[in-house]
């Protein structure tokens, strides 16, 4: 564990708490892509079920339980409790365009051709693109509530912090994880446009609005 990874994980944790806060206080999931949230459940379940056979640390296990539990809870909130505020007509990204290529990639690129390792690779690839339905929705509506942008920023910062973490681990431990690093760089890249608007507008007190 190093500082970059710890701060990254905390940022990930914060992003989920911000999202839950947004839904609970506004009693609405307006502006949140159900598809992205469903993809995160798939990501966490595919990757973190190793909880049952691979113990790393209490920290690691507790985080895994939290991520699986909170992502399922968010789906429940969107699908049942605040269902009327969820508008599927603007959440139109075709997720099969993500699921199928990720499944194929995970069969080709994995560290061991066995179900658990293929699932791990699949979750890494899927996580890297799971935000696309959400970004697509943002692009379509052209604006977002400030709190939704804080959620996305925290999520993007989490990914960005994993990059210095890998650099640090390469020099201190000599380990390199090409699958995670490649997918992680792609994933962080997807946030660049968003970050630009977030840092130049939202943090200056302006509304998050995309140029027409």
């Amino acid at each position: 564990m190093n500082l970059f990874r710890l701060l990254g994980d905390l940022s990930h944790l914060a992003s989920i708490l911000v999202l839950l806060h947004k839904i609970q206080t506004s009693r609405s999931c307006r502006g949140i892509s159900f598809k992205t949230q469903a993809l995160y459940v798939a990501v966490f379940v595919a990757r973190y079920l190793d909880l049952f056979w691979r113990y790393i640390s209490l920290y690691n296990s507790a985080m895994k339980v939290f991520f699986i539990g909170s992502s399922c809870y968010i789906l429940y909130l969107m699908k049942y409790r605040y269902r009327p505020t969820n508008d599927p007509s603007i959440d139109t990204f075709r997720i099969e365009y993500l699921l199928v290529p990720c499944a194929i990639l995970s069969l080709i690129f994995n560290y061991n051709f066995m179900p658990t390792e293929i699932l791990w690779s699949f979750s890494i690839f899927l996580e890297s693109v799971a935000i696309l339905p959400q970004l697509f929705m943002l692009q379509r509506t052209g604006e977002a509530e400030a709190i939704t942008t804080h959620y996305l920023a925290a999520l993007g910062i989490y990914r960005a912090l994993y990059i210095p973490n890998w650099i640090y681990r390469y020099f201190t431990e000599g380990v390199i994880d090409p699958i995670a690093v490649t997918a992680g760089i792609v994933q962080t890249g997807l946030y660049l446009d968003f970050f630009y608007v977030y840092f130049t507008k939202v943090l200056q007190g302006q509304k998050f609005e995309l140029p027409a």
Binding site: D9, H12, K64, F67, W120, Y162, I176, P178
Partner: peptide, 10 residues
């Protein structure tokens, strides 16, 4: 060979 050594990252 790289890290099947645990996937210790989240």
């Amino acid at each position: 060979a790289p890290p099947v050594q645990g996937h210790d990252e989240l």
